[in-house]
Design a binder for these strands. Structure first.
Lengths: 346, 346
DNA sequence: CTGAAAGCGCTTACAG
DNA sequence: CTGAAAGCGCTTACAG
């Protein structure tokens, strides 16, 4: 009992350390370390004494100190757009499960679609020395990450590619999915199809626009400039965009909505209209099959994206030395009714 | 340049430290610390030299080491049931925002409704020395947390109270909400009302059952044992429970569903039935107003619960010494149609 | 089987 | 204004 001041004064906020346990059990520090970490080479009797000291003192190893010594923190960071967005829930959970299976904890945060906040968050995670990062990027310039990556922080981008650096990325096939969706509407007789998508600086928005354009071109259909509206996904903006497309002598007869937030508003608009309007939405959502008409969607597999990204991250942490790769997860068209409504005037 | 081996060998995985920066800038360690932390007492010229060394070396302070020395980790843990559950998204985000405003990072994980996993996760977070914990408990015995709380880890429970320890808790008014929902159905003429809820070991399930029973009793209505089904929220179980209540000569004419997962399945069942059935669900969900009939719900304010819990946590961390408190967040009945359907046989 | 010494990368308390 | 020494709580490398 050398360290009585600590050993006895179990005052609020002060925790026993291995040193306290060692003193109490009458053994050396290293022996405590062996018992705590289940290393071999301790007699059953010694082990029992140490365990007893651990229990009575309420000792719990301080992983911060351990981490400092060992190098790896056994934690990874996940930066996404908004923790409250249901689209990212399954992705978040999938990343967590992979981390858990590797004994790592998950620190996560929202960029709120703000590049400065993304960078601030990412660098805070780097300062905490997370072993790796899964990033759904908000910004389009990630050169700030170069020193971190060089220093060994594994990094995988998801949903959108990294900007101005070469890094692993896991994407949905936005182009293919959008093309299939629009081709589906065309196959059902539509010739005037509107596209309401996300901000043009968002990669997936541009990819989906490219899919829309390609499908139209492949069918030999012209695109009127008023049929395409990229911008905020706020309901008012989406309503205004839809209203513009549906006005005039040659209104669109079908709508392709570029993501789940747009789709939700589009569904509301449909419900308010007296005459039918076809709709295919990018992203599936719960109860899409219960709305009337049920909503035809291009479904992304968010959980698979998260699983793939996290799996790749841990492969990198295990030391594989391949060049950065780009994985594309296929989408799936789910026909439920709204995408199969024929145009009114045919 | 004392430490040339490190200073020059910027090999993959090795990061420069303050010592390297100090050597490069030709200053002492403490001066680097001052610059890095923006402390006063450094001449502009010295500061410039240090900044230069930081930039060329790509130095970023190791917060693990800082934490070890300072005591506080500026991180909090959030343990919820399932990161993929949309109900927790807004709560998660609200906790993050409060943490962020206090300069703290958020580590989170899912208990998967498994008490053992909850404990494992919570203790891992304690070992990392998070400053505080926000817990949506899966288990009903939290005595394992006592040494941690005594050691200064602030803890706030949300959505369900802690088991066998006295701790802060933020709850929805499950009892009041359920009572209001059932009273609403009764007011619309129903006398045989079914309740399908979560596992009986979950506190909110029992509170909602209590609300159901109270409302029935207050209206002088008897409750048939077959009208109450508590258990798993898996669709098959919910379907079976509903089928049992709707069979026989005296089927229920209205359903009160105990949470959002049950409600989703109940909505599907409604859609498949030829004859109308009234429904009020506990928990609101997106598009509840677009389903036909639109779904009447008892809405909880999950974001407010998260904000309240995290706010309380940081008040505790700031040292307030009040006894543990219990905060109840009111619910709100939103009438949309499904709860106002009269019974068939009236 | 056991333990004393050194060190992980910082901050604290102190002295110039 | 500046810096050398000690220490946060562990693990590593080594010696008995």
């Amino acid at each position: 009992m050398t360290d009585t001041a600590r050993g006895t004064a179990r005052r609020y906020g002060t925790r026993p350390t291995m040193k306290d346990v060692a003193a109490r059990a009458g053994v050396g520090l290293k022996t405590v370390s062996r018992v705590v970490n289940g290393e071999p080479g301790v007699t059953p009797d010694t082990e029992r004494r140490v365990q007893e000291a651990i229990t009575t003192l309420g000792f719990r190893r301080n992983d911060s100190a351990r981490i400092l010594r060992k190098g790896r923190t056994a934690s990874i960071g996940l930066v996404l757009e908004d923790l409250a967005d249901p689209f990212y829930g399954p992705l978040n959970r999938a990343v967590e499960e992979v981390a858990r299976s590797h004994g790592a904890l998950l620190i996560n945060g929202s960029s709120a679609e703000d590049p400065a906040r993304e960078q601030e968050l990412v660098l805070a995670l780097c300062a905490r020395r997370v072993d790796g990062l899964v990033i759904i990027p908000a910004g389009d310039d990630h050169r700030y990450l170069e020193p971190e990556i060089a220093a060994g922080i594994a990094t995988v981008f998801v949903d959108r590619p990294a900007g101005r650096i070469d890094a692993d990325v896991v994407l949905s096939d936005s182009f293919g999915g959008a093309r299939e969706a629009v081709a589906h509407l065309i196959a059902h007789g539509h010739r005037r199809i509107g596209f309401i998508g996300d901000q043009p600086r968002i990669h997936t928005a541009m990819e989906r626009l490219r899919g829309y354009r390609t499908a139209m071109a492949e069918a030999g259909l012209p695109i009127d400039a008023s049929w395409v509206a990229l911008g905020s996904t706020a309901p008012e903006r989406v309503r205004a965009a839809a209203a513009a497309m549906l006005a005039g002598p040659e209104p669109v007869t079908a709508l392709f909505s570029g993501n789940n937030r747009v789709t939700v508003t589009a569904v509301r608009i449909l419900g308010e209209r007296p005459r039918p309007l076809a709709l295919v939405g990018f992203d599936d959502f719960e109860l899409a099959d219960l709305v009337s008409p049920a909503i035809t969607v291009v479904a992304q597999d968010a959980a698979r994206m998260g699983r793939t990204a996290a799996g790749l991250l841990f492969r990198r942490l295990d030391g594989i030395e391949e060049p950065p790769c780009r994985v594309e997860i296929p989408t799936r068209l789910i026909t439920r009714g709204s995408g199969e409504i024929p145009p009114e005037d045919v």
